[in-house]
């Protein structure tokens, strides 16, 4: 018997084909391809609530752990100030107290508190921290402020002494929407920090009345220049 004859003989042995039932069973075993599916609405709500709660906790933790990136004492100087609004009866309500410093006219808030609003204080601390980080990475010339603290589009309306520091009074153009005007007092010796500002609105008598103001309280020099 030669090889061809053997092959022909071997080919006489037929094997059955797998049945349909087996094919079905094997196909049923196939792992289903996982398709991306958006979570259900209920899951989305839970997810959103979880993420929101996590974000709040994170915010709280960061704000407590890092009340400020720059320690106030590490800045050349600290300006402690408060800002608020004047009520109709003439009384003043403090809306915010802050410790800040400045670099080339750019104010960096080191710490601030919103009276009677802990959550908002934490919220603001978080954003101040972000701003401080951004300030740290800044190239040091964020604005085109000049040595006398004047800026393009503004005029130095005069000079005044605030807490013993010479300041340039910068008056901005009146607002087109409500005719309010904004004036600030910048101190050249303190990196042109805005020591004071006021917002004035037209009064019934034709003049202007101050509606809100920043009041400088203390300037603390930490390092001799």
């Amino acid at each position: 018997m030669n090889d061809t004859e053997l092959d022909e003989m071997l080919n006489q042995w037929k094997a059955p084909e797998p049945g349909a039932e087996l094919r079905g069973r094997i196909r049923g075993m196939q792992p289903r391809k996982r398709r991306f599916a958006w979570p259900s609405w209920h899951l989305s709500k839970g997810l959103f609530a979880g993420v929101a709660a996590g974000a709040v906790m994170c915010l709280f933790g960061i704000s407590v752990a890092f009340p400020q990136v720059f320690a106030p004492s590490s800045a050349r100087f600290n300006l402690i100030s408060e800002s608020g609004v004047y009520n109709d009866n003439g009384s003043f309500t403090v809306r915010e107290a802050r410790v800040s410093t400045a670099v080339h006219g750019k104010e960096i808030i080191l710490k601030r508190n919103i009276p009677d609003n802990v959550l908002m204080s934490l919220h603001m601390r978080f954003f101040d921290m972000i701003h401080q980080w951004l300030g740290m990475s800044d190239d040091g010339s964020p604005s085109s402020i000049s040595s006398d603290c004047s800026m393009p589009g503004t005029a130095v309306a005069g000079h005044a002494t605030v807490l013993g520091y010479q300041t340039a009074i910068i008056r901005y153009p009146e607002s087109q929407s409500d005719n309010s005007r904004y004036t600030e007092w910048r101190a050249p010796d303190l990196d042109c920090i805005t020591m004071k500002w006021v917002v004035e609105k037209p009064a019934a008598n034709g003049g202007f009345r101050i509606t809100s103001e920043r009041r400088p309280l203390i300037v603390r020099i930490n390092h001799a220049q």
Partner: peptide, 29 residues
């Protein structure tokens, strides 16, 4: 995995090894 093309030769092999359709089905599965 292309089961349709793999199943018949596996089944035939299992059948020829065991001589039993039932055993071949178990083996393939």
């Amino acid at each position: 995995m292309d089961t349709d093309s793999l199943l018949p030769p596996l089944f035939r092999f299992a059948y020829r090894m065991t001589g039993s359709v039932a055993d071949a089905e178990d083996i393939v599965q």
